[in-house]
Design a protein around this nucleic acid. Structure first.
Length: 445
RNA sequence: GCCGGCUUAGCUCAGCUGGCUAGAGCGGGUGACUUGUAAUCACCAGGUCGGGGGUUCGACUCCCUCAGCCGGCACCA
């Protein structure tokens, strides 16, 4: 009989202590725990593993991030598009996903059946016969084919390039059960997905544009990261010259911007080299998010062309890129990164007003209206409970600001400000507080 | 998917080697209290113990199986 024993060893007691401390810290920041505590999202056994339900609080965070992302894309010359969630299986044969990615895909059979027979029978979804006769759709695991169809919808001139399409593309992938992890690894997620169609000579500049955007994201959220370049794998398509050109474009783009990077030999996709940027979580684990991938394969498979200056049809280069990667994963990382205490612009509830007793409800309501009118996400805690209890509730929910109002404040027309970050800030005029918080929101502090 | 562990109330968890009507705290409801910077008190309602099957006089407890979760591996945004 064999008995397997697992263990983790440390050279010094201090290393072990640090490790244990880090685990404890990570537990406090765990996005799955905070997600429940802050009422952000949930996942249900009965709905399916890896499928996320965004609660009102989580939805606010997501919407704020999407708003920001959408605006950044617009500024950077992207055109927003929408594509369907299911498409015919044949399309995925053309794209090659059916062949290479089938085991990760969800399929939808379309069946003609006798409605009478089906009524009241939910035991067997499909008979073997029906499966044989069904024609199949696939739920999209990626957004590229949809973007490509739009590219192909008209003849493109070299003057049209680069063409940059952007979509919040929700995709579904049947990830192995053991790899699922809260929001960080799910089966249904939304990519901030974009595809750039350009001429080969535009490649480096386009990559730099994406890189600049990624850096804007990482600095806005103050995230730590590592940059990796994945080069030509053993199995690949496309000419060696094309690989050489594209890989060099990635390297040059990074070097000219002064970024360090690791080369991961053979880690490129079979269709082209890529830059992956891994974001670090609370315990230092790396999660790929931002990605820039050059693709020689799909333009070929879908026979994409543009008419060049000389009147000849030429093949465009395609760049797949995601800035956050997946919104689910990105928010998961943010929850851990901020330990649930979101910057004010993202906080689901930005301010809670706490009247000392019911006697001050009228004044509290007056303050509430003023903030509401200024566009602040504000709540009035009108429960007949002690101040200490209400403060505790707000602290637990990690609300950035509490405004305590009682006799003093009502008489002087002020509010007592308690900041989650800065502690007790004392009494101020409502307008003074508004200036402070509105600046904070605008500056994304 | 693989290896190991786990699954009891909305949440976090008790429940000894199988044996009376399965417990607590938080949360929820009701009432009282009218409160000054991290938990006021009392009462009440919530569970076919993850699903299915088996062993047994008897299963939350033992076995099988399915599902889900957790940790790790492998794979990926």
């Amino acid at each position: 009989m064999l008995q397997r024993i697992y263990g983790t060893a440390f050279w010094k007691k201090k290393d072990l202590d640090e490790y244990l401390h880090r685990l404890e810290e990570a537990k406090k920041r765990d996005h799955r725990v905070l997600g429940k505590q802050l009422d952000l999202f949930s996942i249900y056994e009965e709905a399916g593993p890896g499928l996320v339900f965004w609660h009102p609080n989580g939805a606010i965070i997501r919407q704020e991030i999407e708003k920001w992302t959408e605006e950044e894309h617009r500024k950077r010359g992207y055109q927003r598009i929408y594509t369907p969630h299911i498409m015919k299986a044949d399309l995925w044969k053309t794209s090659g996903h059916y062949n290479f990615y089938r085991e990760n895909m969800f399929f939808v059979p379309v069946v003609e059946h006798d409605e009478e027979e089906r009524l009241g029978n939910d035991e067997v979804p499909l008979t073997c016969e029906e499966i044989e006769k069904a024609h199949w759709y696939a739920v999209k695991p990626m957004n590229c084919p949809g973007h490509i169809l739009i590219y192909k919808s008209q003849v493109r001139s070299y003057r049209d390039l680069p063409l940059r399409f952007f979509e919040f593309g929700t995709v579904y992938r049947y990830e192995k059960s053991g790899s699922l992890h809260g929001l960080l690894r799910v089966r249904g997620f939304t990519q901030d997905d974009g595809h750039i169609f350009c001429r080969p000579d535009q490649l480096k500049e386009e990559i730099q544009g994406v890189l600049d955007y990624v850096m804007e994201l990482l600095s806005t959220f103050k995230l730590d990261y590592v940059i990796n370049i994945g080069t030509k794998p053993e199995k690949y398509i496309g000419s060696d010259e094309a690989w050489e050109h594209a890989t060099q474009a990635l390297i040059d783009a990074l070097t000219e911007r002064g970024f360090g990077y690791n080369i991961v030999e053979g880690d490129g996709a079979f269709y082209g080299p890529k830059i992956d940027i891994a974001v670090l979580d609370a315990i230092g684990r790396k999660w790929d998010g931002p990605t820039i991938q050059v693709d020689f394969n799909l333009p070929e498979r879908f026979d994409l062309t543009y008419v060049d200056r000389d009147g000849q049809k030429k093949r465009p280069v395609m760049v797949h890129r995601a800035i956050m990667g997946s919104i689910e994963r990105f928010i998961g990382l943010l929850i851990e990164h901020y330990a649930g205490l979101f910057p004010t612009w993202l906080a689901p509830t930005q301010v809670v007003i706490i009247p000392v007793s019911d006697k001050f409800l009228d004044y509290a309501d007056e303050v509430y209206r003023k903030l509401k009118e200024a566009g602040i996400r504000v709540k009035l805690d009108d429960e007949s409970a002690k101040v200490g209890y209400k403060i505790r509730k707000a602290e637990t929910m990690k609300i950035p600001y509490m405004l305590i109002v009682g006799q003093k404040e009502q008489e002087s027309g002020t509010v007592s400000v308690r900041s989650k970050r800065e502690g007790d800030l004392g009494a101020m005029e409502v307008s003074q507080f508004l200036d402070k918080i509105l600046t904070e929101i605008k500056e994304k502090l």
